[in-house]
Amino acid sequence: MSYQADRIERRNRRKAIVITTLLYGSLLTFFLVKDAISWKKYMPEVVLELIGEEAPATAVAATDEVRP
């Protein structure tokens, strides 16, 4: 019995995990390195806590501003 299909599936899964990790890592690195972009506005609070940063004082959901 041939296990070639199982090996191909495992290889594809590994490739997908590596590519996804690289994409998210490069995006995170871009926001951390780029000074002109306020990356704290786009990060979830959980990620900011893991990094050791404080969340921004005014969150969008906490504002009293009403859109027309």
Rank of each mutant, 00 (worst) to 15 (best):
G25V: 12
G25E: 13
G25C: 10
S26D: 10
S26M: 15
S26N: 08
S26K: 00
S26F: 10
S26Y: 04
S26T: 07
S26A: 07
S26W: 06
L27P: 03
L27Q: 03
L27R: 09
L27I: 14
L27W: 06
L28I: 15
L28N: 01
L28H: 05
L28P: 00
T29V: 10
T29L: 15
T29N: 04
F30W: 09
F30D: 03
F30L: 15
F30V: 08
F31H: 08
F31V: 02
F31K: 00
F31P: 00
F31R: 03
L32W: 10
L32K: 13
L32A: 10
L32V: 13
L32N: 10
L32C: 09
V33F: 12
K34D: 13
K34R: 14
K34N: 15
D35C: 00
D35P: 14
D35F: 03
D35E: 10
D35A: 07
D35Q: 13
D35R: 09
A36Q: 14
A36K: 12
A36R: 15
A36H: 10
A36C: 11
A36T: 14
A36M: 07
A36I: 12
A36N: 14
A36Y: 13
I37V: 15
I37N: 00
I37P: 02
I37D: 05
S38L: 09
S38H: 05
S38I: 01
W39K: 01
W39Q: 02
W39G: 03
W39E: 01
W39Y: 14
W39F: 12
W39H: 10
K40E: 10
K40N: 02
K40F: 00
K40P: 01
K41H: 10
K41S: 09
K41P: 01
K41E: 12
K41R: 12
Y42K: 03
Y42I: 09
Y42S: 03
M43A: 15
M43F: 15
P44F: 06
P44H: 11
P44Y: 08
P44V: 05
E45C: 06
E45T: 12
E45W: 00
V46N: 06
V46S: 05
V46F: 06
V46Q: 12
V46A: 14
V46Y: 05
V47F: 03
V47C: 04
V47R: 00
L48P: 00
L48Q: 09
L48V: 05
L48S: 00
L48T: 04
L48R: 08
L48F: 04
E49W: 00
E49A: 14
E49H: 08
E49Q: 15
E49K: 11
E49P: 02
E49L: 09
L50G: 11
L50H: 13
L50V: 07
L50W: 11
L50C: 04
I51A: 10
I51R: 05
I51T: 09
I51M: 12
I51E: 05
G52W: 07
G52K: 04
G52Q: 06
G52S: 08
G52P: 02
E53C: 08
E53I: 02
E53D: 04
E53A: 15
E53N: 02
E53L: 11
E54K: 14
E54C: 05
E54Y: 06
E54N: 13
E54V: 13
E54Q: 14
E54W: 08
